[in-house]
Write a protein that binds this DNA or RNA. Structure first.
Ligand SMILES: [Mn+2]
Ligand SMILES: [Mn+2]
Ligand SMILES: [Zn+2]
Ligand SMILES: [Zn+2]
Lengths: 145, 145
DNA sequence: TCTCAATTGAGATTTAGTTTCAATAAGAAT
DNA sequence: ATTCTTATTGAAACTAAATCTCAATTGAGA
């Protein structure tokens, strides 16, 4: 019975593996991201720091999100625009998104089967899967009039 | 035994359904897109017209690709950058992409199972699926040193 | 043929994300 | 504790991609 490796550990390991440093800014960003329960993007995250008076540069936020993504602390999400959206992993567990072309509504879904097939395919192509972006575009029930 | 509805028909039907017109520009773009056998983006498509002296505005190309996407004439693809890439449907049949975070190499894959599950999920959520964007990010064999 | 909303071209504009570079900080080595 | 090397940061400039603006034009139904 082993204690599950916590996400901060994994994040730090990624940094080490890449020869990067665990800075105050990275600590703040890590913590903030873990506290958000919904979808967000780089700028909305930046605004949270700004609003509370914590000075972290916008560029720093942009620079670090990809690392959190790669370490699995956050996952790709979907928003109403075309910018990069994220959400904390394990808020509701991993899931993917359907985007309505009519009203931009987001429907979340999850399928273990789907996830497993992705793993299988990755193995087949000797691809080391880190994360994925899977969005279905179409029309929600309301918009199918 | 019914003749399969050709793609131009489907495109025209989409236009009609949306109250849009079948212009010369749309015709040109439709034909050009059908003639490209590889991945492309709005600008590379625009350049093809420019090079051969056919004047179609860049904005017109940008404006119309989403319609071709929605009608299924083209599908979302993946390129080396983060812009929107497309490719003609039925060049090699529908497929999705793995993107190497190391060298940006693109691996194409296809899985009927995966496609079926997407259909199932869409049905479950009463979502009318039009197209999807499914990309796996990770490291290709070479970049896993 | 008439009418009118949709479309286009050309350039300006917006948006999202990246780059630059001097100053600073992390953290390994001494 | 001090030195050293390299990564990191902030702030603003910049770039890339896509969208918007608006007057002139065109498609297609009446
Ligand atoms: Mn979500
Ligand atoms: Mn492809
Ligand atoms: Zn909708
Ligand atoms: Zn690679």
């Amino acid at each position: 019975m082993q204690k599950p490796k916590d996400q901060l550990e994994v994040f730090k390991e990624l940094l080490t593996r890449k020869g990067l440093k665990y800075t105050h800014e990275r600590e703040s960003i890590y913590e903030e991201v873990r506290a958000i329960n919904h979808h967000f993007n780089a700028d909305s995250l930046y605004e949270r720091f700004k609003k509370r008076g914590e000075r972290i540069a916008r560029a720093t936020v942009y620079r670090n999100l990809p690392l959190l993504l790669e370490s699995g602390v956050v996952q790709k999400s979907a928003g109403n625009g075309k910018r990069d959206f994220y959400e904390r992993t394990r808020t509701k567990g991993h899931h993917d998104h359907m985007v309505c072309l009519g009203c931009r509504k987001i429907i979340e879904f999850h399928s273990d089967e789907l996830e497993q097939i992705q793993e299988q395919l990755s193995r087949k192509y000797k691809f080391k899967l880190v994360f994925h972006d899977h969005r279905l575009f179409g029309y929600c029930e309301k918009c199918q009039s």
